[in-house]
Amino acid sequence: MSKMGWVWIGFVFMLVVDAVIPWFALTHVQKMSGAFAFWLVWVVVAIAAAFVIVRNWREVK
């Protein structure tokens, strides 16, 4: 599979995790260390992945 295909799969996986973890694994954790902390870590991972990809971009003519 192409690099683009893998990146799309990774993105879709992140979206699935976005709903599955808070609504199923953390649904009874009534603390800031529950869904609140999860979503923060989750989005930082997404942002870090984007930075890694963008870092390689080069000027075009």
């Binding site: 990146v7 799309w8 992140m14 979206l15 989005v43 997404a46 942002i47 984007a50 963008v54």
Partner: peptide, 13 residues
Amino acid sequence: ELTYLCGIFMLVF
């Protein structure tokens, strides 16, 4: 709202 921010990831494409 963070789901929106994650959606910004699509801008890499």
